[in-house]
């Protein structure tokens, strides 16, 4: 009986890209079913930013000075909130195990997952940021610079956070530990990102800081998925 269907081998599509596309499509479907999580994160970002004029000073001149820090810390905390669910939902219902067993490099699948996660949380945060900056007295002309800086920054944060999200999979409530693990790694992103934003707001050229930010993104794309894959394997044990 050994010369049955199996020994003739089933036609199996072994290309990697269709698998990554399947992950993207599925996560978009999930978002359509439950848009709540994304809206909560955006809401958090808005509320944190709007609290500053109330708690500090309503003077636009003063607010403009602290605007880069406020935007970046707000965006950082909002992306950390979002990262909690990055792999956890899939780990809890057992679908993540199937990713490990599909015969594709896990790092590539996790990169696709992290990229779509950024698309659904980091990108909306980025788009929202110039509008919030206006409420802090920043001119709308700074918008392109702020978009670019935060776009790169949130991408780096999602990638860095994916490592910590993998490591905290095995824990029941990993939220605080996830923050403690990712924040130190996120410091360079915060420094260069806030610097770029500050330069943009003052009307100077932010090129140098943006280059450094972009190099951090490249580094994160190269190394974070490998680390995240190792972390997820440990987290699922």
């Amino acid at each position: 009986m050994s010369e049955g269907l199996h020994t003739q081998e089933v036609s199996r599509d072994t290309r990697l890209l269709p698998k990554c596309a399947a992950i993207v499509v599925r996560d978009l479907q999930l978002l359509v079913r439950r848009p709540g999580q994304m809206l909560q994160i955006l809401g958090f970002f808005v509320v944190v930013t709007v609290l500053f004029p109330l708690g500090y000073s309503p003077e636009l001149g003063k607010l403009r000075l602290i605007a880069p820090g406020v935007l970046w810390v707000g965006a950082l905390l909002a992306s950390l909130l979002a990262l909690e669910g990055l792999f956890r939902d899939d780990a809890e219902d057992g679908t993540l195990e199937q990713w490990l067993l599909c015969g594709q490099p896990l790092a590539a699948l996790l990169l696709a997952k992290t990229a779509v996660h950024w698309l659904l949380t980091g990108l909306p945060l980025t788009v929202l940021a110039p509008l919030l900056a206006v409420t802090l007295g920043v001119s709308i002309e700074a918008a392109p610079g702020i978009l670019l800086a935060l776009g790169l920054g949130t991408l780096a944060l999602s990638l860095i956070g994916s490592i910590a999200a993998g490591l905290t999979l095995g824990l029941r409530r990993g939220g605080v530990l996830l923050s403690l693990l990712s924040l130190p790694l996120a410091v360079p992103v915060l420094i260069f990102g806030a610097r770029a934003t500050e330069l943009v707001i003052q009307g100077d050229s932010p090129t140098a800081a943006l280059y450094l930010l972009a190099s951090l993104v490249v580094l994160a794309i190269t190394l974070a998925p490998l680390a995240a894959a190792a972390a997820v394997r440990i987290g699922l044990e």
Binding site: A22, D93, T95
Partner: peptide, 30 residues
């Protein structure tokens, strides 16, 4: 690529339909 594992929990996303779930799981395996 030659094995399938079925654990005691069915690996399905609660928010998707059965059809969508199967489509994803099987696309992942090509």
């Amino acid at each position: 690529q030659g094995l399938s594992y079925l654990s005691h929990a069915a690996p399905l996303k609660a928010d998707l339909t059965g059809w969508e779930n199967l489509r994803f799981l099987l696309s992942l395996r090509g």
